[in-house]
């Protein structure tokens, strides 16, 4: 009988990671070229912002605002990064955010106070993710179609719940979280939530079997299946995760706006996909980077802020965003060609 090969005891000490590579290459491998160039872009944007509007852009309040705005879409993007890494797509994120935010702010829900709102927002997000996941993993539907259907229905349901009206939040605990008094060391609580989600997302993707399975399913679903991975269950979990992130984002949005609206999260799906792609996550799956996605979100939010400060209309912003997506993907293709 063949025994499984046992990992040598204490191998962790004897074979340090990347021991075969010189120090600089280790560094380069860790913070790869793409991440560094994204950081460079972000720094350049900050410089541009600082030059064009020195007083306003670098003002603490403005920076807090940028980070707060990045938090909502950022949390959605973390979930989206998992889905795209697995070779899927979730077009329903914006609609789920809208539905979660309105369901959690109905008069009936608000009776249950802070916990009721938080719980409902998360539960609605997970519920929508569950439907997406079941349709895709076990119903054999293409992710694009299943989540497109969810986009339409969730938006419709959100409109039905609100009847197009803004639902004002009256719970003090929620409203207070958006005020300056609750900032911790100058950091808004929303940003802290985003940071925690990012760190957990990074750890899951890079350090857990769940992350490995996600990458394997996206890189080669057939190989993953033949290697004994339950591909369908993994897909279900991934859309659940994306829904969960949408629920959290909806809660953040409720804090931020003090209300729930059926127009919330408009076009989040495109922003989240764009941020993930320019971050370096492959749309075809098999490679994903949480760090890149977060940098992508920060870049987009900073651009929006700089343009707004310089009184440039949103049409110009859209054009700039489009150009950045094209440029980032072209650069990626070039680096991909070099590395193979």
């Amino acid at each position: 009988m063949t025994q499984p090969v046992s990992p040598p005891r204490g191998s962790t000490d004897k074979v340090p990671p990347m021991s075969e590579l010189p120090a600089w290459r280790t560094l380069a491998a860790r913070a790869d070229v793409r991440t560094l160039s994204l950081l460079g872009v972000l720094v350049a944007l900050i410089v541009i912002g600082g030059i064009t509007k020195p007083d306003e852009f670098l003002d603490t309040r403005n920076l807090q605002l940028v980070l707060t705005q990045a938090s909502v879409i950022g949390v959605v993007t973390v979930g989206m990064t998992f889905v795209i890494t697995s070779g899927g797509i979730d077009l329903s994120v914006g609609a789920i955010v809208a539905l979660s935010s309105v369901w959690a702010t109905t008069v009936a829900t608000q009776e249950y106070g802070f916990a009721g709102i938080l719980f409902t927002a998360v539960l609605v997000g997970v519920g929508c993710g569950l439907v997406n996941g079941l349709l895709i993993a076990y119903g054999g539907m293409v992710p694009f179609i299943a989540t497109l259907a969810m986009l339409a229905s969730a938006r419709g349901l959100a409109l039905q719940i609100t009847d197009g009206k803004t639902q004002i939040v009256t719970i003090d605990g929620i409203l207070k979280l958006g005020e300056r008094d609750s900032y911790i060391l100058g950091i808004p609580p929303l940003v802290l939530v985003f940071a925690v989600v990012t760190i957990i997302g990074w750890l899951i993707l890079n350090r857990t079997t769940f992350g490995r399975r996600t990458v394997a399913v996206g890189g080669n679903a057939e190989a993953a299946r033949l290697a004994g991975i339950d591909v369908r269950r993994q897909r279900l979990y991934l859309y659940l995760l994306s829904g969960l992130c949408c629920g959290i984002a909806a809660f953040l949005l409720i804090i931020l706006s003090g209300s729930g609206q059926n127009t919330n999260g408009n076009l989040y799906e495109l922003d989240a996909i764009a941020a993930a792609i320019i971050g370096g996550t492959l749309l075809s799956g098999g490679r994903g980077t949480i760090t890149g996605s977060v940098l992508g979100v920060l870049i987009f939010t900073t651009i929006t802020n700089i343009f707004a400060l310089n009184n440039l209309q949103s049409d110009v912003q859209q054009i700039a965003k489009g150009a950045i997506i094209v440029a980032a993907v072209l650069v990626q293709r070039r680096t991909a060609a070099h590395s193979t």
Partner: peptide
């Protein structure tokens, strides 16, 4: 390691040293 990930992980957390060694 893709087919035996559970052997280097506890609670889904991968021990990358053990994985690499194996």
């Amino acid at each position: 390691s893709v087919s035996s990930m559970s052997r280097f992980s506890r609670g889904g957390w991968i021990d990358r040293g053990a994985e690499r060694g194996a």
